[in-house]
């Protein structure tokens, strides 16, 4: 029965335009999605005369590591990498710590009931509002606090962007955690921070890791505030790669190499936690 019914779903939904057409469309889609990555990787390893050739060379005849050496020597990729790691890690730590504390308190704490609704509503609004609207005031505030070009300001901004989503997701995790254990430890005289730290949070650890990874990726990819709030020494990778474009000459090889450095950590994270990732993104979106 199950096998039969599964075939129904297949023929009625997935093959709604006929099997051959479907395969052709999916193939085209596949190529369009992945070809840019092929192009990026091959260009990153092409010799200068090959990435500057017109017509372009589809299959490089020789590969070189020169572009990667170039971005290390001329374009400060290490500094950018360290900045990106610091910003994303810092934002992740703060977001997960603060976010889990707040969601724990909203679910298991002794707060007025109505407060939970108020906060949930607030975070929903906060999650949707466009970051650009506070860009100009933030720029002037950070400038007058002399925090320009400081990774700390970017850590704070990224934390604030990710907190709403993380809290909304974590409220769900804490709600699902069994309350009996919490109750028992309450009777045993554990204080609230003890229960948070040793009893309930360990039960939602996998959720925290998933949201943490999501925060890491979003902060790693963040560009708007990175470009506004950095001048020189704290530029992350996203700003460095954009710098290749604003120059008059477009140096494809090193640019593609830089692209690899920006993209691969994120792809690795995605590969490590595939399922949680889809779950996180879709839950995060649909909670809206």
């Amino acid at each position: 029965m199950r096998v039969g019914s599964r075939r129904v779903k297949q023929s009625y939904l997935s093959n709604f335009i006929g099997f051959p057409t479907r395969i052709i469309i999916l193939l085209i889609l596949f190529v369009v999605i992945l070809f840019p990555f092929y192009w990026m990787i091959t260009n990153a390893f092409k010799l200068e005369q090959e990435y500057y050739s017109s017509p372009p060379i589809m299959f490089p005849s020789r590969i070189t590591g020169q572009n990667f050496i170039d971005i290390v020597q001329k374009y400060e990729v290490f500094k950018g990498l360290i900045n990106s790691i610091m910003i994303a890690t810092g934002a992740t730590i703060f977001t997960v710590a603060f976010g889990s504390m707040a969601s724990y308190s909203l679910i298991n704490g002794a707060l007025p009931r109505r407060l939970k609704g108020v906060f949930a509503g607030w975070f929903l609004v906060q999650k949707m509002y466009p970051a650009i609207v506070v860009a100009v005031p933030v720029f002037y505030i950070i400038r007058s606090l002399r925090l320009m070009d400081n990774v700390l300001s970017l850590i704070i901004m990224n934390t604030s962007f990710n907190l709403p989503l993380v809290i909304l997701l974590m409220i769900g995790f804490y709600q699902e955690a069994p309350f009996e254990v919490e109750e028992q430890s309450m009777l045993d005289g554990c204080t609230l921070p003890q229960r948070y730290l040793y009893v309930t949070t360990p039960m939602v650890k996998s959720g925290l890791i998933a949201t943490g990874m999501l925060t890491f990726v979003y902060s790693w990819n963040e560009f708007l505030y990175a470009v506004i709030l950095t001048v020189n020494k704290s530029k992350p990778l996203t700003v460095l790669i954009a710098g290749f474009i604003t120059d008059k000459a477009l140096i494809w090889g090193p640019m593609a190499a830089m692209g690899c450095v920006v993209v691969f950590p994120v792809l690795m994270i995605m590969w490590l936690m595939q399922r949680d990732f889809i779950g996180g993104i879709s839950a995060g979106a649909l909670k809206g």
């Binding site: 999916l26 889609l29 596949f30 999605i33 992945l34 840019p36 990555f37 192009w39 990026m40 260009n43 990435y51 500057y52 050739s53 017109s54 372009p56 589809m58 990726v217 790693w220 990819n221 560009f223 996203t238 790669i241 954009a242 290749f244 474009i245 477009l250 494809w252 640019m255 593609a256 692209g259 920006v262 993209v263 994120v266 792809l267 995605m270 595939q274 990732f277 889809i278 993104i281």
Partner: peptide, 30 residues
């Protein structure tokens, strides 16, 4: 396919822009 679908949406938009800027170049673009 579902796994591959995730790739474009999680890379930095800046990187996506750069990538396509490179591919859509009038003379050198693929």
């Amino acid at each position: 396919m579902t796994t591959f679908l995730m790739v474009p949406m999680i890379i930095a938009p800046v990187a996506a822009g750069t990538l396509w800027r490179m591919m859509l170049d009038r003379t050198y673009g693929v």
